[in-house]
């Protein structure tokens, strides 16, 4: 769990803090699973389109690896920018 967020929760009573963390954890799990599924779908669709063999071919595997790595890097970058915008929206005006 992210420390900086929990620091924000410090002002809450203990019970509420726990409830919030539990809520965030639950959301985190759900979101990770969703992300897993959608990443599999995306990389499978983009990388695997012939079914001449039963097992994943070398180039398909390479493609899937790159696809996953690239998506995670992309997701991190979007997260960074998103956080900046979120921050900005809260502090401006």
């Amino acid at each position: 769990m992210d420390k900086s967020m929990l620091a924000d929760l410090d002002s809450l009573p203990e019970a509420d803090k726990q409830r919030m963390s539990a809520m965030i954890d639950q959301l985190q799990i759900r979101d990770s699973l969703r992300m897993y599924n959608s990443l599999v779908e995306r990389c499978f669709t983009d990388c695997v389109d012939t079914f001449k063999h039963k097992s994943l071919q070398k180039q398909e595997e390479t493609c899937v690896r790159r696809c996953a790595e690239k998506f995670l890097k992309h997701s991190m970058r979007v997260g960074m920018r998103f956080a900046e915008l979120n921050q900005g929206a809260a502090t401006q005006d």
Binding site: M1, M5, D8, L9, S11, Q28, A83, Q87, A89, T91
Partner: peptide
Amino acid sequence: MKVANLLGPCSVVFAELMSICEAS
């Protein structure tokens, strides 16, 4: 992606919940 990172520091609901926005 950490869910916690997506949350704005002083979003409406959180502000209500903890009133840290005014405090800070």
